[in-house]
Amino acid sequence: MSEIYINNNGEVRANTGATIQSGNRGHLYGDGLFESLRVLNGKPQNVEAHINRMVEGAKVLKIRIPNYYTAEFFEEKIQELLDLSGITQGGRVRISLDRAVGGTYKPESNEANYFLEVYPLEHNAYTLNYKGYEVDLFMDMRKQNDILANFKTKNALVYVMASIAAAEKQLDDLLILNPKGEILEGSSANLFVVSNGVLYTPGLEEGCLAGVMRMKIINLALANGIKVYECNIMPQNLLAADEIFMTNAVKGITWVGGYRTKRYFNNMSKKLTDLLNKSVVELQENTEEN
């Protein structure tokens, strides 16, 4: 297996030993953002959508982004790492964007630093889980609906605690609520509820993450004649649903088999996973033609 490489703000090196700078504000204070991307056929997926979200999040955090931090810039840097690391099939990428080193709670600078990591994955397509997830509600904490809610900031303790609580309950995941008791998402994925062939998903105004795969699935569904509504989702809606699935950029779609005593089908999850993989093939073919 090839050695895996990282890019620390322009310095490319092997991913062995310490790689981040002492005083990194993402490490010290969670003062930054991150994006997780899927790699298929050795190519990073949906780069522009991820970079757009990262740039918008940086504006909210008042981190100054250089003009050259474009989708093209990061795609080139990611591809360099994938090639060096010998990742020609499935993989994942993590982009970290942190405020520059210096200061305590009050930073000395609002300039940006980036950090890129790549890792191989076994599957070279979006694959649906064989066994449906078992889920429940996370009641110990609520996710605040504020200016940071739609972005992937490094202040992620609500997701960490939900994941730990799920493991303690021997469940696959717990669903996170906002202060009004509306269901937002899982610990690492957006949520979709299916009733009578219609998709329902929490709206961004409720405080869920503005997931890249969430929007990809919404657009795919609409393009294929499947109705989608963004609305508030309450616990009782789960009990009335025919199907529940979750989405994230790396896994694609994960179907839910049960919520408490309720059991679910996965017909829509299978259909959308097929459409998702088909869209990847079509995009690659169009790129090669051009």
Rank of each mutant, 00 (worst) to 15 (best):
A14T: 14
N15I: 06
G17K: 06
T19M: 10
I20E: 04
S22V: 15
G23Y: 07
N24T: 09
N24M: 05
L28E: 02
L40V: 12
E48I: 04
N52Y: 01
M54H: 02
G57F: 02
A58S: 15
K62V: 09
Y69G: 04
A71R: 05
E72H: 09
F74E: 09
Q79V: 09
L82Y: 10
L84S: 09
I87C: 12
V93D: 04
R94D: 11
S96D: 14
R99F: 07
E108A: 14
L116E: 05
Y119R: 12
P120T: 12
L121A: 06
Y130F: 03
Y133P: 00
M139E: 13
D140S: 13
M141G: 00
Q144H: 09
L148K: 11
A156Q: 10
L157Y: 11
M161I: 01
S163P: 00
A165P: 00
Q170D: 14
L175R: 08
G186K: 12
S188F: 08
N190V: 02
V194M: 08
V194N: 06
L199I: 02
L199Y: 01
V212G: 06
N219A: 14
N224R: 08
G225S: 05
K227M: 09
K227G: 03
Y229W: 00
E230G: 05
E230Y: 01
I233L: 08
N237T: 00
L238A: 03
F245A: 01
I253N: 02
T254I: 12
W255S: 01
T261P: 04
Y264V: 02
M268R: 05
K270G: 01
T287I: 06
N290S: 08
